[in-house]
């Protein structure tokens, strides 16, 4: 069963409350959301000629990736193509042997991960990497870390301003919990949640960081149809309401074709395609590399 974008749209209309308003307020305090004429034009993230190899294996060779303001970019490619590696290079977790990463025209190739995150490049992980001992709400508040304005001594002494700041952060976190429809499990330790809910909590934690751009590594992998539709809905909401450009690695071609503005295709560490969904769906190189033997059937479904 594939995700039906019409279902997603219907569910979005049916929502009575959206949440995220507090988060948006908090974001707008620091910066303006992108304007209409910046959207799809201004390049916000650029990874240039990234090359990285592990032992003899070329995980990425001269891969260039551009993300523009307001864009929802999907990265697809077979297993081991280097998709996750590319995100790891962008978030400063792997060091590229060659190539540079620019974020808003600033070179961030050698920045440490926590600094890159604090600048607003936030991500989720393919294999969930939550703080297992904390509850959902605490995971999300932990994601607020760079935005909390008091030092540890104020926290230890629990001065009134620290207490107020904690309450404000909790309020924003609760706003995210509402948005993700996780009110029921907000105080549950994440280790006890189902896989789908854990992925959702991880999305919440990334949101809490007030992303300037959001990198999602297979946000829907291993989910059932309902859960996938929910996640698709959240991604579209985040994208529209907060105008956050998103890079999403995803194997579900149906979803990718429906929601992505642009698709980049990786194969064996090489970029073999980059274009609008309808172009990519027709590209014979992409179809044979990625879609393999069943390519024809899928290509037919796409068109």
């Amino acid at each position: 069963m594939a995700v039906d974008i019409r279902n997603v749209a219907k569910k979005r209309e049916q929502r009575y409350s959206y949440g995220l308003t507090l988060l948006r307020e908090s974001i707008e305090k620091d910066r303006d959301l992108p304007t209409e004429d910046e959207i799809f034009k201004k390049v916000i993230l650029k990874a240039e000629d990234i090359t990285i190899s592990f032992g003899g294996l070329n995980a990425l060779s001269d891969v260039t990736l551009e993300l523009r303001e307001g864009e929802l970019l999907a990265i697809i490619g077979p297993n081991g193509a280097g998709k996750t590696t590319l995100l790891n290079v962008i978030s400063g977790f792997y060091r590229a042997q060659k190539g540079e990463v620019y974020f808003q025209d600033q070179k961030i190739t050698h920045f440490s991960s926590h600094r890159i995150a604090a600048m607003g490049i936030c991500r989720t992980f393919q294999n969930i990497a939550l703080y297992t001992g904390l509850s959902v709400i605490d995971n999300i508040i932990a994601g607020r870390h760079p935005h909390i304005n008091y030092n540890f001594l104020n926290g230890m002494l629990y001065f009134p301003w620290a207490r107020r700041e904690e309450a404000r952060q909790r309020q924003i976190a609760e706003d995210i919990v509402d948005f993700l429809e996780m009110e029921q499990v907000r105080n549950t330790t994440v280790g006890m949640l189902s896989y789908g809910l854990r992925k959702r909590a991880e999305l919440g934690r990334a949101l809490a960081l007030e992303p300037r751009i959001l990198l999602l590594d297979e946000p829907m992998a291993g989910m059932n149809l309902d859960e996938k539709e929910d996640i698709a809905r959240f991604i579209i909401d985040i994208h529209e309401f907060l105008r956050i450009p998103i890079v999403m690695i995803e194997h579900d071609m149906g979803v990718v074709m429906d929601i992505a503005d642009r698709i980049v295709v990786l194969d064996f560490g090489v970029k073999i395609g980059d274009g609008l969904p309808e172009e990519i769906g027709k590209d014979p190189k992409v179809v044979s590399a990625y879609l393999g033997a069943t390519g024809e059937r899928v290509a037919w479904k796409i068109s």
Partner: peptide, 20 residues
């Protein structure tokens, strides 16, 4: 408070904590 959560984050998943 803030630092206490950071401690637990580092304990539970230090790689994720750094990237977060």
């Amino acid at each position: 408070t803030k630092l206490g959560r950071a401690f637990v984050a580092v304990r539970d998943n230090d790689i994720a904590a750094e990237v977060m």
